Simulated scan of single mutants.
Amino acid sequence: MSSNDAVPPVEPQSRFAGTLLDVLDKVEYARIQPEDVNDPVYKLRYEAYRRENFLPYNSEEVYTDPLDLSPNAYTFGVFIEGRLVSSIRIHHITPDCRISPSLGVYEDILGPMLDQGMTFTDPTRFTADHEASLAYPALPYLTLRLGLMASEHFSVDYCLQSVRPEHAPFYRRIFLSQPMGPERTYGQLSFPIVMVGSHVPETLPRILRRFPFFLSTREEREALFAGPGRVSFGHKVAATAKLEQKLRREQALAAE
């Protein structure tokens, strides 16, 4: 689905949605150069994992893994008023590029779906600055917005979420995700994960009508997810949810 497709009018805006749209006026996203181990995103990730005792101390105080360098990986910093507040990594999985954290754990489930020609986005490595998470309780929404943008940009079948079992209800409530894989372990994590997923062609229009802060223009998506040679690494891209909401309302009025 693209910004120019005919879409139902945006639902009446809740106070929660309005508040997040206002916060988005201050939000920018930047895709990082994955080979740059000195990028502040990797330091933020290290600090977040150390805070949760997921990692041992290392003198560089950065954390990367081999999947950061995979050809289908997109890693982002999220900025509010110019300050780095969170980050996320997204893998775009296709039948020709079968690399991602979820695929490593649930290949027996996802492999046959890929054999049928399906595609996925796999957002992982969501980390946040501790002080920012207290100042902005809605930070997960502002960060996970990138996963929806990627899912729309690449027109995938499913947006995957491999998360702690206790976090799965959040994804069911917000992203209309359904169970896709049982509890398993991943790498050296000390807790189990489950895989849930949102069937994008069915759920994306419903999510965007309910939560307009997830809206984005095609221009924003292309600036963040363009192919090699067409993206400016480190360039901050403003959130465009309000603009896209305005455009859709104008489209709906013109269609009446």
Results as ranks from 00 to 15, higher is better:
residue 2 S to F: 15
residue 5 D to T: 05
residue 6 A to V: 12
residue 8 P to D: 14
residue 10 V to R: 08
residue 10 V to I: 14
residue 10 V to D: 09
residue 12 P to N: 03
residue 13 Q to R: 15
residue 13 Q to T: 14
residue 22 D to M: 12
residue 23 V to H: 01
residue 23 V to E: 10
residue 28 E to W: 05
residue 33 Q to A: 14
residue 37 V to R: 13
residue 43 K to M: 00
residue 46 Y to E: 05
residue 46 Y to L: 07
residue 46 Y to R: 00
residue 47 E to I: 00
residue 48 A to W: 02
residue 50 R to L: 08
residue 53 N to Y: 09
residue 62 V to F: 06
residue 68 D to V: 06
residue 69 L to I: 11
residue 71 P to G: 08
residue 73 A to S: 15
residue 73 A to Q: 01
residue 75 T to E: 04
residue 81 E to V: 06
residue 81 E to L: 05
residue 81 E to T: 06
residue 84 L to V: 12
residue 84 L to W: 03
residue 90 I to P: 01
residue 91 H to G: 06
residue 92 H to P: 10
residue 93 I to A: 03
residue 96 D to I: 08
residue 97 C to Q: 15
residue 99 I to T: 09
residue 108 D to Q: 11
residue 109 I to K: 08
residue 110 L to H: 11
residue 111 G to S: 12
residue 112 P to Q: 04
residue 112 P to H: 03
residue 114 L to H: 13
residue 115 D to F: 03
residue 116 Q to S: 13
residue 116 Q to H: 13
residue 117 G to I: 07
residue 119 T to P: 12
residue 121 T to W: 02
residue 122 D to V: 01
residue 128 A to S: 13
residue 128 A to C: 05
residue 133 S to F: 01
residue 136 Y to R: 11
residue 153 H to T: 02
residue 153 H to I: 06
residue 155 S to A: 14
residue 157 D to I: 07
residue 157 D to S: 12
residue 159 C to D: 12
residue 159 C to V: 07
residue 160 L to W: 13
residue 163 V to G: 09
residue 165 P to W: 11
residue 168 A to H: 04
residue 169 P to G: 00
residue 174 I to M: 14
residue 174 I to N: 02
residue 178 Q to A: 09
residue 180 M to S: 06
residue 183 E to W: 13
residue 183 E to I: 10
residue 185 T to N: 13
residue 191 F to K: 11
residue 192 P to L: 14
residue 194 V to K: 08
residue 197 G to V: 11
residue 199 H to E: 14
residue 199 H to V: 01
residue 200 V to A: 04
residue 200 V to F: 05
residue 201 P to V: 07
residue 202 E to C: 03
residue 202 E to A: 15
residue 203 T to G: 00
residue 205 P to A: 02
residue 206 R to C: 03
residue 212 P to L: 09
residue 213 F to E: 08
residue 221 R to I: 01
residue 222 E to K: 14
residue 234 G to W: 04
residue 239 A to R: 09
residue 242 K to Q: 15
residue 244 E to L: 07
residue 246 K to D: 13
residue 255 A to Y: 05
